[in-house]
Design a protein around this nucleic acid. Structure first.
Length: 430
RNA sequence: GGAGAGGUGGCCGAGUGGUCGAAGGCGCAGCACUGGAAAUGCUGUAUAGGGGCAACUCUAUCGAGGGUUCGAAUCCCUCCCUCUCCGCCA
Protein backbone atom coordinates (compact mmCIF):
# COMPACT_ATOMS: atom_id res chain seq x y z
CA UNK A 1 0.00 0.00 0.00
CA UNK A 2 1.14 3.50 -0.75
CA UNK A 3 1.65 6.03 2.00
CA UNK A 4 -1.34 8.32 2.57
CA UNK A 5 1.08 11.10 3.40
CA UNK A 6 2.69 10.68 0.00
CA UNK A 7 -0.72 11.14 -1.58
CA UNK A 8 -1.13 14.34 0.39
CA UNK A 9 2.36 15.80 0.12
CA UNK A 10 3.68 14.56 -3.19
CA UNK A 11 0.99 13.11 -5.46
CA UNK A 12 3.06 14.02 -8.52
CA UNK A 13 5.60 11.41 -7.50
CA UNK A 14 2.92 8.72 -7.45
CA UNK A 15 1.61 9.73 -10.87
CA UNK A 16 5.14 9.81 -12.27
CA UNK A 17 6.30 6.50 -10.77
CA UNK A 18 3.15 4.53 -11.53
CA UNK A 19 3.40 6.08 -14.98
CA UNK A 20 6.62 4.07 -15.35
CA UNK A 21 4.44 0.99 -14.99
CA UNK A 22 2.31 2.22 -17.84
CA UNK A 23 -0.53 3.53 -15.68
CA UNK A 24 -2.23 6.83 -16.36
CA UNK A 25 -3.59 8.33 -13.17
CA UNK A 26 -5.54 11.31 -12.10
CA UNK A 27 -5.37 11.64 -8.35
CA UNK A 28 -7.36 14.84 -7.87
CA UNK A 29 -10.53 13.05 -6.77
CA UNK A 30 -8.60 10.87 -4.35
CA UNK A 31 -6.73 13.84 -2.93
CA UNK A 32 -10.04 15.58 -2.37
CA UNK A 33 -11.29 12.58 -0.41
CA UNK A 34 -8.12 12.58 1.66
CA UNK A 35 -8.49 16.25 2.44
CA UNK A 36 -12.19 15.95 3.31
CA UNK A 37 -11.44 13.03 5.55
CA UNK A 38 -8.87 15.02 7.45
CA UNK A 39 -11.20 18.00 7.89
CA UNK A 40 -13.93 15.74 9.19
CA UNK A 41 -11.56 14.14 11.63
CA UNK A 42 -10.61 17.55 12.95
CA UNK A 43 -14.23 18.57 13.44
CA UNK A 44 -15.14 15.30 15.04
CA UNK A 45 -12.28 15.23 17.51
CA UNK A 46 -12.96 18.83 18.56
CA UNK A 47 -16.57 17.88 19.29
CA UNK A 48 -15.46 14.81 21.18
CA UNK A 49 -13.11 16.94 23.25
CA UNK A 50 -16.04 19.12 24.26
CA UNK A 51 -18.13 16.06 25.06
CA UNK A 52 -15.35 14.77 27.27
CA UNK A 53 -15.20 18.08 29.11
CA UNK A 54 -18.95 17.98 29.73
CA UNK A 55 -18.73 14.45 31.01
CA UNK A 56 -16.09 15.51 33.51
CA UNK A 57 -18.16 18.52 34.61
CA UNK A 58 -21.21 16.37 35.30
CA UNK A 59 -19.08 14.05 37.37
CA UNK A 60 -17.64 16.92 39.38
CA UNK A 61 -21.05 18.49 40.01
CA UNK A 62 -22.58 15.25 41.22
CA UNK A 63 -19.65 14.47 43.45
CA UNK A 64 -19.90 18.06 44.73
CA UNK A 65 -23.46 17.34 45.88
CA UNK A 66 -25.55 18.58 42.96
CA UNK A 67 -28.82 16.69 42.42
CA UNK A 68 -28.52 14.41 39.37
CA UNK A 69 -31.61 16.02 37.86
CA UNK A 70 -31.01 19.61 38.80
CA UNK A 71 -31.50 22.03 35.88
CA UNK A 72 -27.77 22.73 35.85
CA UNK A 73 -26.87 19.09 35.38
CA UNK A 74 -29.73 18.50 32.99
CA UNK A 75 -28.53 21.29 30.73
CA UNK A 76 -25.12 19.66 30.49
CA UNK A 77 -26.75 16.33 29.75
CA UNK A 78 -28.73 17.80 26.91
CA UNK A 79 -25.63 19.38 25.48
CA UNK A 80 -23.83 16.05 25.79
CA UNK A 81 -26.61 14.30 23.91
CA UNK A 82 -26.55 16.85 21.13
CA UNK A 83 -22.81 16.39 20.74
CA UNK A 84 -23.20 12.66 20.68
CA UNK A 85 -25.61 12.89 17.78
CA UNK A 86 -23.38 15.28 15.86
CA UNK A 87 -20.38 13.04 16.41
CA UNK A 88 -22.31 10.03 15.13
CA UNK A 89 -23.13 11.84 11.89
CA UNK A 90 -19.55 13.00 11.34
CA UNK A 91 -18.19 9.59 12.19
CA UNK A 92 -20.32 7.92 9.58
CA UNK A 93 -19.20 10.30 6.85
CA UNK A 94 -15.62 9.96 7.96
CA UNK A 95 -15.78 6.20 7.90
CA UNK A 96 -17.20 6.06 4.41
CA UNK A 97 -14.49 8.40 3.12
CA UNK A 98 -11.85 6.38 4.89
CA UNK A 99 -13.13 3.15 3.37
CA UNK A 100 -13.12 4.63 -0.12
CA UNK A 101 -9.64 6.01 0.37
CA UNK A 102 -8.28 2.72 1.66
CA UNK A 103 -9.95 0.69 -1.08
CA UNK A 104 -8.30 2.82 -3.72
CA UNK A 105 -4.92 2.89 -2.02
CA UNK A 106 -4.99 -0.90 -1.67
CA UNK A 107 -5.57 -1.22 -5.41
CA UNK A 108 -2.43 0.72 -6.37
CA UNK A 109 0.67 -1.34 -7.11
CA UNK A 110 4.02 -0.54 -5.55
CA UNK A 111 6.18 2.25 -6.91
CA UNK A 112 9.08 0.82 -8.95
CA UNK A 113 12.56 1.24 -7.54
CA UNK A 114 14.74 3.91 -9.18
CA UNK A 115 17.06 1.06 -10.28
CA UNK A 116 14.26 -0.77 -12.05
CA UNK A 117 14.69 -0.48 -15.84
CA UNK A 118 11.86 1.21 -17.70
CA UNK A 119 9.92 -0.78 -20.24
CA UNK A 120 6.47 -1.67 -21.47
CA UNK A 121 6.57 -5.43 -20.99
CA UNK A 122 8.40 -8.74 -20.97
CA UNK A 123 10.36 -7.93 -24.11
CA UNK A 124 12.15 -5.07 -22.40
CA UNK A 125 13.44 -6.97 -19.39
CA UNK A 126 17.19 -6.58 -19.06
CA UNK A 127 19.42 -9.63 -18.92
CA UNK A 128 22.05 -9.10 -16.22
CA UNK A 129 24.14 -12.28 -16.36
CA UNK A 130 24.28 -15.94 -17.33
CA UNK A 131 25.70 -18.91 -15.54
CA UNK A 132 26.65 -22.30 -16.99
CA UNK A 133 26.71 -23.60 -20.52
CA UNK A 134 23.24 -24.42 -21.91
CA UNK A 135 23.02 -27.93 -23.31
CA UNK A 136 22.27 -27.92 -27.02
CA UNK A 137 21.18 -30.70 -29.38
CA UNK A 138 24.10 -32.50 -30.99
CA UNK A 139 23.93 -33.19 -34.72
CA UNK A 140 23.58 -36.88 -35.44
CA UNK A 141 22.21 -37.72 -31.99
CA UNK A 142 18.52 -38.19 -31.16
CA UNK A 143 16.59 -34.99 -30.43
CA UNK A 144 16.44 -33.88 -26.83
CA UNK A 145 13.16 -34.73 -25.12
CA UNK A 146 10.98 -32.39 -23.14
CA UNK A 147 10.65 -33.12 -19.45
CA UNK A 148 7.10 -34.46 -19.66
CA UNK A 149 8.16 -36.99 -22.26
CA UNK A 150 11.01 -38.17 -20.06
CA UNK A 151 8.82 -38.18 -16.97
CA UNK A 152 6.12 -40.25 -18.62
CA UNK A 153 8.63 -42.63 -20.13
CA UNK A 154 10.28 -43.19 -16.75
CA UNK A 155 6.96 -43.44 -14.95
CA UNK A 156 7.63 -40.41 -12.75
CA UNK A 157 4.29 -38.65 -13.19
CA UNK A 158 0.71 -39.54 -14.02
CA UNK A 159 -1.35 -36.70 -15.40
CA UNK A 160 -4.35 -38.60 -16.70
CA UNK A 161 -5.31 -40.25 -13.42
CA UNK A 162 -4.80 -36.91 -11.68
CA UNK A 163 -7.69 -35.49 -13.68
CA UNK A 164 -9.80 -38.25 -12.12
CA UNK A 165 -8.72 -37.19 -8.64
CA UNK A 166 -8.99 -33.43 -9.19
CA UNK A 167 -9.03 -31.88 -12.65
CA UNK A 168 -6.58 -30.87 -15.36
CA UNK A 169 -3.39 -29.08 -14.33
CA UNK A 170 -2.87 -31.41 -11.41
CA UNK A 171 -0.25 -34.17 -11.39
CA UNK A 172 0.54 -37.19 -9.32
CA UNK A 173 4.21 -38.01 -8.81
CA UNK A 174 5.14 -41.65 -8.56
CA UNK A 175 8.12 -43.74 -7.53
CA UNK A 176 11.42 -42.02 -8.28
CA UNK A 177 9.47 -38.93 -9.34
CA UNK A 178 7.84 -38.59 -5.93
CA UNK A 179 11.16 -39.33 -4.29
CA UNK A 180 12.96 -36.75 -6.40
CA UNK A 181 10.42 -34.07 -5.48
CA UNK A 182 10.93 -34.87 -1.78
CA UNK A 183 14.70 -34.97 -2.21
CA UNK A 184 14.69 -31.56 -3.88
CA UNK A 185 12.62 -30.01 -1.11
CA UNK A 186 14.98 -31.41 1.53
CA UNK A 187 18.05 -30.42 -0.41
CA UNK A 188 16.85 -26.84 -0.90
CA UNK A 189 15.83 -26.41 2.73
CA UNK A 190 19.12 -27.83 3.98
CA UNK A 191 21.09 -25.57 1.72
CA UNK A 192 19.19 -22.46 2.81
CA UNK A 193 19.47 -23.44 6.48
CA UNK A 194 23.24 -23.59 6.06
CA UNK A 195 23.13 -20.04 4.68
CA UNK A 196 21.35 -18.61 7.69
CA UNK A 197 17.68 -19.11 6.91
CA UNK A 198 15.28 -20.33 9.56
CA UNK A 199 13.13 -23.15 8.27
CA UNK A 200 9.39 -22.58 8.51
CA UNK A 201 6.42 -24.82 7.77
CA UNK A 202 3.40 -22.51 7.90
CA UNK A 203 -0.35 -23.08 7.47
CA UNK A 204 -1.27 -23.23 3.81
CA UNK A 205 -4.84 -22.09 4.33
CA UNK A 206 -4.70 -18.35 4.87
CA UNK A 207 -7.37 -15.78 5.68
CA UNK A 208 -8.30 -12.70 3.65
CA UNK A 209 -6.32 -10.38 5.89
CA UNK A 210 -3.18 -12.35 5.08
CA UNK A 211 -3.79 -12.20 1.33
CA UNK A 212 -4.42 -8.46 1.61
CA UNK A 213 -1.24 -7.94 3.62
CA UNK A 214 1.03 -9.39 0.95
CA UNK A 215 -0.88 -7.84 -1.97
CA UNK A 216 -2.92 -10.67 -3.53
CA UNK A 217 -6.17 -9.06 -2.40
CA UNK A 218 -8.23 -7.12 -3.26
CA UNK A 219 -7.13 -7.07 -6.92
CA UNK A 220 -6.23 -10.68 -7.62
CA UNK A 221 -8.99 -12.65 -5.93
CA UNK A 222 -9.62 -14.68 -9.10
CA UNK A 223 -6.09 -16.11 -8.97
CA UNK A 224 -6.59 -17.99 -5.69
CA UNK A 225 -8.76 -20.90 -4.65
CA UNK A 226 -11.07 -20.03 -1.78
CA UNK A 227 -12.93 -21.89 0.92
CA UNK A 228 -15.66 -19.30 1.10
CA UNK A 229 -17.48 -20.85 4.07
CA UNK A 230 -14.52 -20.13 6.31
CA UNK A 231 -12.86 -16.98 4.99
CA UNK A 232 -9.89 -19.13 4.11
CA UNK A 233 -7.96 -19.48 0.87
CA UNK A 234 -5.40 -21.95 -0.42
CA UNK A 235 -2.17 -20.02 -0.35
CA UNK A 236 -0.80 -19.12 -3.80
CA UNK A 237 2.72 -18.75 -2.37
CA UNK A 238 4.46 -19.06 1.00
CA UNK A 239 5.06 -15.33 0.75
CA UNK A 240 1.50 -14.94 2.08
CA UNK A 241 1.78 -16.85 5.37
CA UNK A 242 5.34 -15.64 5.99
CA UNK A 243 4.38 -11.98 5.61
CA UNK A 244 1.50 -12.41 8.01
CA UNK A 245 3.60 -14.42 10.46
CA UNK A 246 4.83 -11.03 11.71
CA UNK A 247 1.71 -9.01 10.88
CA UNK A 248 0.98 -6.22 13.40
CA UNK A 249 4.31 -6.72 15.14
CA UNK A 250 6.95 -4.25 16.20
CA UNK A 251 10.33 -5.98 16.07
CA UNK A 252 13.55 -4.96 17.77
CA UNK A 253 16.19 -3.58 15.39
CA UNK A 254 18.65 -6.21 16.68
CA UNK A 255 16.38 -8.98 15.43
CA UNK A 256 16.80 -7.85 11.84
CA UNK A 257 17.24 -9.25 9.35
CA UNK A 258 14.85 -12.14 9.89
CA UNK A 259 15.40 -14.72 7.17
CA UNK A 260 12.97 -17.57 6.59
CA UNK A 261 12.93 -20.50 4.21
CA UNK A 262 9.55 -22.16 3.90
CA UNK A 263 8.40 -25.13 1.89
CA UNK A 264 4.71 -25.08 0.98
CA UNK A 265 2.47 -26.40 -1.74
CA UNK A 266 1.14 -23.43 -3.73
CA UNK A 267 -2.27 -23.20 -5.35
CA UNK A 268 -3.08 -21.00 -8.30
CA UNK A 269 -6.05 -20.89 -10.64
CA UNK A 270 -3.83 -19.88 -13.56
CA UNK A 271 -6.81 -18.03 -14.98
CA UNK A 272 -6.20 -16.83 -18.50
CA UNK A 273 -3.55 -19.38 -19.33
CA UNK A 274 -5.78 -21.89 -21.12
CA UNK A 275 -3.81 -23.97 -23.56
CA UNK A 276 -0.39 -22.81 -22.36
CA UNK A 277 2.04 -25.32 -20.87
CA UNK A 278 -0.65 -27.94 -20.61
CA UNK A 279 1.77 -30.84 -20.34
CA UNK A 280 4.11 -31.70 -17.55
CA UNK A 281 5.25 -29.77 -14.51
CA UNK A 282 5.51 -26.20 -15.72
CA UNK A 283 2.09 -24.73 -15.01
CA UNK A 284 -0.07 -26.49 -12.42
CA UNK A 285 -2.88 -25.56 -10.07
CA UNK A 286 -0.87 -27.14 -7.26
CA UNK A 287 2.91 -27.10 -7.10
CA UNK A 288 5.61 -27.22 -4.49
CA UNK A 289 7.89 -24.32 -3.78
CA UNK A 290 10.60 -23.43 -1.30
CA UNK A 291 10.35 -19.72 -0.59
CA UNK A 292 13.01 -17.37 0.77
CA UNK A 293 11.90 -14.34 2.72
CA UNK A 294 13.62 -11.46 4.49
CA UNK A 295 12.34 -8.88 6.94
CA UNK A 296 15.06 -6.26 7.03
CA UNK A 297 16.12 -2.72 7.86
CA UNK A 298 15.24 -0.26 5.07
CA UNK A 299 18.89 0.74 4.67
CA UNK A 300 19.85 -2.86 3.99
CA UNK A 301 17.16 -3.98 1.60
CA UNK A 302 19.15 -3.34 -1.55
CA UNK A 303 22.06 -5.50 -0.37
CA UNK A 304 19.53 -8.02 0.94
CA UNK A 305 17.97 -8.24 -2.52
CA UNK A 306 21.32 -9.11 -4.05
CA UNK A 307 21.99 -11.66 -1.31
CA UNK A 308 18.58 -13.31 -1.56
CA UNK A 309 18.98 -13.60 -5.32
CA UNK A 310 22.44 -15.11 -4.84
CA UNK A 311 20.97 -17.60 -2.35
CA UNK A 312 18.42 -18.72 -4.93
CA UNK A 313 21.11 -18.89 -7.64
CA UNK A 314 23.23 -21.05 -5.36
CA UNK A 315 20.63 -23.80 -5.61
CA UNK A 316 20.78 -23.77 -9.40
CA UNK A 317 24.57 -23.80 -9.30
CA UNK A 318 24.65 -26.69 -6.86
CA UNK A 319 22.30 -28.58 -9.15
CA UNK A 320 24.48 -27.69 -12.16
CA UNK A 321 21.58 -26.05 -13.98
CA UNK A 322 22.50 -23.22 -16.37
CA UNK A 323 20.41 -20.09 -15.98
CA UNK A 324 20.21 -16.39 -16.68
CA UNK A 325 19.17 -13.45 -14.52
CA UNK A 326 16.67 -10.88 -15.78
CA UNK A 327 16.11 -7.47 -14.25
CA UNK A 328 12.38 -7.04 -14.81
CA UNK A 329 11.37 -3.78 -16.42
CA UNK A 330 8.67 -1.57 -14.92
CA UNK A 331 6.05 -2.94 -17.30
CA UNK A 332 6.59 -6.54 -16.20
CA UNK A 333 6.91 -5.91 -12.48
CA UNK A 334 4.53 -7.69 -10.10
CA UNK A 335 2.00 -5.81 -8.02
CA UNK A 336 3.90 -5.67 -4.71
CA UNK A 337 7.43 -5.51 -6.09
CA UNK A 338 9.65 -2.45 -6.35
CA UNK A 339 12.28 -4.43 -8.23
CA UNK A 340 12.50 -8.05 -9.33
CA UNK A 341 15.24 -10.35 -10.55
CA UNK A 342 13.86 -13.38 -12.35
CA UNK A 343 16.01 -16.49 -12.55
CA UNK A 344 15.36 -18.42 -15.74
CA UNK A 345 16.65 -21.95 -16.00
CA UNK A 346 17.67 -23.46 -19.31
CA UNK A 347 15.39 -26.26 -20.51
CA UNK A 348 17.40 -28.15 -23.17
CA UNK A 349 14.42 -30.18 -24.41
CA UNK A 350 12.20 -27.15 -24.86
CA UNK A 351 15.23 -25.16 -26.02
CA UNK A 352 14.27 -22.16 -23.93
CA UNK A 353 14.86 -20.36 -20.65
CA UNK A 354 11.94 -20.65 -18.17
CA UNK A 355 11.30 -18.71 -15.01
CA UNK A 356 12.18 -20.78 -11.96
CA UNK A 357 12.49 -18.05 -9.34
CA UNK A 358 11.33 -14.50 -8.93
CA UNK A 359 13.29 -12.49 -6.37
CA UNK A 360 11.63 -9.25 -5.36
CA UNK A 361 12.16 -6.42 -2.99
CA UNK A 362 8.91 -4.83 -1.91
CA UNK A 363 10.30 -1.91 0.08
CA UNK A 364 7.78 -0.95 2.76
CA UNK A 365 4.79 -1.77 0.53
CA UNK A 366 3.87 -5.04 2.23
CA UNK A 367 5.07 -3.85 5.62
CA UNK A 368 2.58 -0.99 5.49
CA UNK A 369 -0.28 -3.30 4.47
CA UNK A 370 0.70 -5.79 7.16
CA UNK A 371 1.76 -3.18 9.71
CA UNK A 372 5.15 -4.71 10.42
CA UNK A 373 7.52 -2.26 12.04
CA UNK A 374 10.71 -2.13 14.03
CA UNK A 375 12.20 0.09 16.72
CA UNK A 376 14.81 2.35 15.18
CA UNK A 377 16.14 3.99 18.34
CA UNK A 378 13.13 5.84 19.74
CA UNK A 379 11.25 5.79 16.45
CA UNK A 380 8.97 3.08 15.15
CA UNK A 381 9.45 2.56 11.41
CA UNK A 382 8.15 0.26 8.73
CA UNK A 383 10.67 -2.38 7.75
CA UNK A 384 11.30 -3.79 4.28
CA UNK A 385 10.29 -7.20 2.98
CA UNK A 386 11.85 -9.33 0.25
CA UNK A 387 10.91 -12.67 -1.20
CA UNK A 388 12.10 -15.10 -3.80
CA UNK A 389 11.65 -18.70 -4.79
CA UNK A 390 14.48 -20.92 -3.80
CA UNK A 391 13.20 -22.67 -5.94
CA UNK A 392 10.00 -23.77 -7.64
CA UNK A 393 10.38 -27.52 -7.14
CA UNK A 394 8.43 -28.88 -10.13
CA UNK A 395 10.23 -26.65 -12.57
CA UNK A 396 13.52 -27.66 -11.00
CA UNK A 397 12.65 -31.30 -11.64
CA UNK A 398 11.74 -30.46 -15.22
CA UNK A 399 15.13 -28.78 -15.70
CA UNK A 400 16.97 -31.70 -14.10
CA UNK A 401 15.24 -34.22 -16.36
CA UNK A 402 15.93 -32.27 -19.52
CA UNK A 403 19.49 -31.38 -18.57
CA UNK A 404 20.48 -34.84 -17.38
CA UNK A 405 18.85 -36.92 -20.12
CA UNK A 406 21.14 -39.54 -21.67
CA UNK A 407 21.12 -41.25 -25.03
CA UNK A 408 20.27 -44.55 -23.31
CA UNK A 409 17.04 -43.08 -21.94
CA UNK A 410 18.26 -42.64 -18.38
CA UNK A 411 18.69 -39.33 -16.54
CA UNK A 412 21.92 -38.39 -14.80
CA UNK A 413 21.48 -36.49 -11.54
CA UNK A 414 23.89 -33.91 -10.11
CA UNK A 415 26.28 -35.02 -7.36
CA UNK A 416 24.60 -32.73 -4.82
CA UNK A 417 21.44 -34.83 -4.97
CA UNK A 418 23.06 -38.22 -4.52
CA UNK A 419 22.90 -38.14 -0.70
CA UNK A 420 19.20 -37.29 -0.96
CA UNK A 421 18.28 -39.73 -3.73
CA UNK A 422 20.65 -42.57 -2.93
CA UNK A 423 21.52 -42.85 -6.61
CA UNK A 424 23.02 -40.73 -9.35
CA UNK A 425 20.76 -41.83 -12.16
CA UNK A 426 17.08 -42.34 -12.95
CA UNK A 427 16.48 -45.53 -14.92
CA UNK A 428 13.41 -46.75 -16.80
CA UNK A 429 11.33 -48.90 -14.46
CA UNK A 430 11.92 -52.60 -15.02
C1' G B 1 -19.32 -31.35 19.11
C1' G B 2 -20.83 -30.64 24.83
C1' A B 3 -19.73 -28.01 29.65
C1' G B 4 -17.05 -24.25 32.15
C1' A B 5 -13.32 -20.14 32.64
C1' G B 6 -11.10 -16.12 30.45
C1' G B 7 -9.06 -12.18 26.80
C1' U B 8 -6.06 -5.25 30.14
C1' G B 9 0.56 -1.92 28.01
C1' G B 10 7.09 -5.71 25.95
C1' C B 11 5.66 -9.44 30.05
C1' C B 12 2.98 -10.51 34.83
C1' G B 13 -1.11 -8.41 37.08
C1' A B 14 -4.86 -4.80 39.71
C1' G B 15 -9.02 -2.41 38.33
C1' U B 16 -17.36 -3.77 38.23
C1' G B 17 -19.86 3.48 35.97
C1' G B 18 -16.70 9.49 36.62
C1' U B 19 -10.19 13.14 36.86
C1' C B 20 -8.28 5.55 34.20
C1' G B 21 -4.20 5.35 28.83
C1' A B 22 -4.99 2.57 33.14
C1' A B 23 -2.17 0.86 40.29
C1' G B 24 1.82 -2.42 41.50
C1' G B 25 5.68 -5.56 39.86
C1' C B 26 9.15 -7.40 36.10
C1' G B 27 11.83 -6.01 31.91
C1' C B 28 14.16 -2.03 29.19
C1' A B 29 16.63 3.04 28.76
C1' G B 30 18.90 7.36 31.05
C1' C B 31 20.94 9.60 35.42
C1' A B 32 23.01 9.27 40.48
C1' C B 33 26.05 6.28 43.71
C1' U B 34 30.97 3.04 42.46
C1' G B 35 37.84 2.40 40.82
C1' G B 36 34.47 -0.72 37.77
C1' A B 37 30.28 -3.67 38.44
C1' A B 38 26.31 -5.74 41.42
C1' A B 39 22.83 -3.91 44.75
C1' U B 40 20.20 0.62 45.62
C1' G B 41 17.79 5.31 44.44
C1' C B 42 15.60 8.79 40.97
C1' U B 43 13.51 9.62 36.15
C1' G B 44 11.52 7.80 31.81
C1' U B 45 9.28 3.79 29.02
C1' A B 46 2.22 1.79 24.22
C1' U B 47 0.09 2.55 19.27
C1' A B 48 -2.37 5.30 15.46
C1' G B 49 -4.25 9.88 13.64
C1' G B 50 -4.95 15.45 13.73
C1' G B 51 -2.83 20.50 15.05
C1' G B 52 2.01 23.13 16.25
C1' C B 53 8.88 25.18 14.21
C1' A B 54 8.94 23.30 19.03
C1' A B 55 7.73 22.58 24.14
C1' C B 56 3.26 20.59 23.72
C1' U B 57 -1.80 19.54 22.72
C1' C B 58 -6.47 17.12 20.98
C1' U B 59 -8.88 12.42 19.51
C1' A B 60 -9.15 7.16 19.39
C1' U B 61 -7.55 2.39 21.24
C1' C B 62 -8.16 -2.32 27.77
C1' G B 63 -9.80 -9.15 21.77
C1' A B 64 -13.38 -7.02 17.45
C1' G B 65 -18.03 -4.73 16.31
C1' G B 66 -22.59 -2.68 18.06
C1' G B 67 -25.75 -0.79 22.28
C1' U B 68 -27.12 1.70 27.18
C1' U B 69 -25.23 6.48 29.60
C1' C B 70 -23.77 13.36 30.15
C1' G B 71 -19.68 9.70 31.10
C1' A B 72 -17.76 2.51 29.84
C1' A B 73 -11.71 -1.37 30.78
C1' U B 74 -16.08 -1.73 34.08
C1' C B 75 -23.19 -2.79 32.29
C1' C B 76 -25.96 -5.28 27.80
C1' C B 77 -25.84 -7.83 22.76
C1' U B 78 -23.16 -10.23 18.62
C1' C B 79 -18.74 -12.22 16.82
C1' C B 80 -13.56 -13.88 17.18
C1' C B 81 -9.79 -16.10 19.95
C1' U B 82 -7.39 -18.70 24.19
C1' C B 83 -7.45 -22.14 28.30
C1' U B 84 -9.56 -26.45 31.28
C1' C B 85 -12.65 -30.90 31.40
C1' C B 86 -15.57 -34.49 28.43
C1' G B 87 -16.37 -36.63 23.48
C1' C B 88 -14.17 -37.58 18.66
C1' C B 89 -9.78 -38.00 15.81
C1' A B 90 -4.25 -38.41 12.33
Amino acid sequence: MLDQRLLRDNPELIVEQLGRRGMTLNLTALQLIARQERDLEQQRSDLQAEGNRIGRQVGELIRGGAAPHSPEVQALRDRGNTIKQQVAVLEEEEKSLETRLREQLLAFPNLPSPHCPDGAGEAENVERRRWGIPRMPVAGEPALEEHWQIAERLGLIDSERSVRIAQSRFVTLLGAGARLERALISFMLDQHASRGYREMLPPILVNSASLTASGQLPKFAEESFSCADDDLWLTPTAEVPITSFHRDEILAAEQLPLKYAAYTPCFRREAGSYGRDTRGLIRLHQFNKVELYWFCHPDESEAAHAQLTADAEAVLQALELPYRVLDLCTGDLGFSAARTFDLEVWLPGAGTYREISSCSTCGDFQARRASIRFKDGKKTRLLHTLNGSGLAVGRTMAALLETGQQADGSVRLPQALVPYMGCDRLLPEA
